[in-house]
Nucleic acid binder design. Structure first.
Lengths: 350, 350
DNA sequence: TTCCGTTCCGTAAACGGTTCCGGTACCGTC
DNA sequence: GACGGTACCGGAACCGTTTACGGAACGGAA
């Protein structure tokens, strides 16, 4: 009989286990597991009757236990420098939404940009708790990533700091084309004396944007002037500082291309302090199109990165990797797009 | 001998297990476990020699397995409406940092404000994967929370939507005192005709702020005027809309107290559209002191909530709960503080 | 009828830990 | 010398699943 042999029908001590469900449904544990995992080898009637009990008790399988026995936990790790950030926030958000749709859970690992922390966190992730990981702007060196790769641990990097070693899947945005777009926009507005405020030199995103900037300038037959591009660390203060320097020069630029919105906000501040009106006297374009770009005055013309989409794409690659599928394309670059708002205008005459 | 009986000393097939460590150290599995968990009943020498092997191989215990056998996984669930949000971001950030310090991991569950999603997520969390949970602005009804409580699942709510049922630990900020502070500030500046833009009526945070606002007004012998307080949903557009209405009246207020920074930003927009200068003609104060308050023009005078601290405090309560300690105080309210910046000024004369 | 193939399902062995329950060695005491 | 106590450690059961394997029941072909 499908009767209580171990436990009464009433409420279980804690939550129901697969065994409880099996008892209740009058089948073996194995069968319940098969039903739960959509395996064949179960008759439709049995499947249905098991499902009824499952539904009735709101049973869900214990992922820890599943991880133990099958090696698949349904949890993926996600490392990122900061969780509370206009830039990483949307990526995380996109990734988490995609993961939810796949019925996978997220193990969140903020690294605060600390290399050691990231390494140790990652090390733990590989130890059975997770099926794979998404590494956002990873702190790891190429060797470390390669090692991870050799271990056979599935992971993908989103928004790489440096070009990742061959073979590791990676999604980023088209930095150089975005930068080119922004610069061309400034050029079309008649600006010729254009400054740039970069991010951290050596970072992939920064260097690519420099390339795009230079390319557009070159195409307009403007000689590259190293003095016109200053570097910061993607933050508002360093952006402000760089803009300050640019604007204090004898012949300040009429436009500044900032490599991220933070720098652009900093530039806005500097301009305000100098009594320079944006966009009438100075055009500013940002990069990323974070939320901040729309609440600042004037609203920023900026290059949109599909941030949430970066996250979604990352999990898409990752799940395929976990499934053991061979990836067709390891490198994915998402298109960027210029969003014109109020911080750019035709170059002042004279 | 401490020699290889199952596995050679070289690299293991995957990661080392506790059994590998035990073999290598020449002790039993149980002993390794004791060492790892800082249990007594191990001699200092044994402990040290085991630790050496552990360190050498960078061994860390498989949390899923631990969860299975001991019931403690070292993972806590964290539900919140949005991960990419100026308000929740800092709370999440604070919580994650505190959790990291406790060597606990986070299972992130964004609910997108969907009740069903939150319930199902939470249901899964209780099933063995987590030791407890932090519920940020939970969607759950009191009954649901109470049920969770009865199950014996440890959880704490941070920033409750409604006053939680008795017995459930909960941390929030001093909304009404904060609102009182803000209103008094406006009053001191000479404003007498003060409007307010609330959030969602019925929410604890909103209602408390209404109380604080009214209290300060009453103390200044100003009669409460229901027309002067409009409600939105904490977003910029609804804030803007409410401000629009306030400013379109025959006798518009000289100051608006917004119940969050979003609404304040909306009010800023509305004022700009009306050609009303802030703060000269209109004072605006926000609430929360999110990052946005400082990048907007003019920078917002606002009431600071210790957001990160809310998160930290939440995990502090939760860990105590998990340890089985009785909590001294179930309700915790963190102090709020007025931050005066540029969006408030003395009331215009006449 | 016998035999083979399917289809469906149960048994039991892992998975990697924790912890209860003892067992040994060694010490001091009578 | 016998005994009890303590400190330390190992054996083994168990946590909740998955899955390889085998067995029963049944149908069709020889």
């Amino acid at each position: 009989m499908a009767q209580l042999d171990r436990r009464p029908d009433q409420k279980f001590r804690g939550r129901a286990t697969i065994r409880d469900i099996a008892d209740l449904a009058g089948v073996s544990i194995a069968t319940v597991s098969r039903v739960l995992n959509d395996r064949p080898d179960v008759s439709p009637e049995t499947r249905e009757s098991v499902m009824q009990v499952v539904r009735k008790h709101g049973f869900t399988t214990n992922r820890g236990a599943r991880g133990l026995s099958s090696g698949r936990t349904g949890i993926v790790g996600l490392t990122l420098p900061l969780v509370n950030d206009a830039y990483f926030g949307p990526i995380l958000s996109g990734a988490s939404e995609a993961l939810y749709e796949q019925d996978m859970r997220i193990m969140l690992c903020p690294t605060l940009h600390e290399h050691d922390r990231e390494v140790s966190l990652l090390d733990r992730l590989t130890r059975g708790t997770t099926d794979g990981a998404i590494l956002m702007l990873p702190e790891e060196s190429s060797e470390e990533l390669q090692h991870l790769q050799e271990i056979g641990y599935p992971f993908v990097v989103v928004d790489p700091r440096e070009p990742p070693p061959p073979g590791v899947p990676c999604v980023s945005a088209m930095h150089s084309t975005g930068a080119k777009l922004a610069t061309e926009h400034l050029l079309e507005l008649g600006h010729r004396h254009i400054g740039a405020i970069g991010g951290s030199p050596g970072w992939y995103a920064n260097d690519e944007r420099v390339i795009g900037f230079r390319a557009a300038m070159a195409a307009a037959r403007l000689l590259p002037d190293p003095d016109m591009i200053l570097y910061g660390d993607w933050s508002i203060p360093t952006g402000e500082q760089a803009a300050e320097e640019l604007l204090s020069r004898p012949d300040p630029p009429t436009a500044i291309f900032c490599f991220n919105d933070n720098a652009a906000i900093g530039a806005l501040n500097a301009a305000r302090r100098h009594g320079i009106s944006v966009p009438d006297e100075l055009s500013i374009v940002g990069f990323d199109d974070t939320f901040q770009a729309t609440i600042v005055t004037p609203r920023l013309t900026t290059v949109r990165q599909p941030l949430a989409e970066l996250g979604r794409m990352g999990v898409s690659l990752l799940t395929r990797l976990i499934e053991g599928q061979r990836l067709d394309a390891l490198r994915i670059e998402l298109a960027t797009e210029l969003v014109i708002r109020e911080s750019t205008a035709p170059a002042p005459v004279g």
